[in-house]
């Protein structure tokens, strides 16, 4: 099946797909904003982000706002490439159907 090989297992999860979709169009998004946008709980999002981080799809920035630590994320070059390839794969698969 054409395009199938381009699909990325990492994006099978809706949460990871959601995180990547947001980051591909936004620079540096705060953890809290991601959580809210995807309507998730803390633990749930953290594990998905950790796995994206392990694949080096994300850049991480930690800083202090007052006394509270704040983590922000940005899509990395690798991540962007992977996401684009996944999208191309989806597109090819759907085109093949018509």
């Amino acid at each position: 099946m054409k395009g199938f090989d381009k699909l990325n297992k990492a994006f099978d999860s809706r949460v990871r797909l959601g995180v990547m979709s947001i980051l591909v169009v936004n620079d540096w998004v705060k953890y809290g904003d991601l959580k809210e946008r995807l309507s998730l709980t803390d633990g749930n999002l953290a594990s998905h982000i950790a796995s994206l981080e392990k694949l080096s799809y994300l850049e991480v920035r930690k800083e202090f706002v007052g006394k509270r630590p704040q983590t922000s994320y940005k899509i990395s070059k690798t991540g962007k490439r992977a996401f684009e390839q996944h999208l191309n794969g989806l597109e090819e698969l759907l085109k093949g159907k018509q």
Binding site: G18, I22, V25, N26, L87, E91, L94
Partner: peptide
């Protein structure tokens, strides 16, 4: 569904 979800997320977050 994946595609439409991606599109919604991109749109709503910007």
């Amino acid at each position: 569904e994946q595609l439409s979800e991606i599109r919604d997320m991109m749109k709503e977050s910007t």
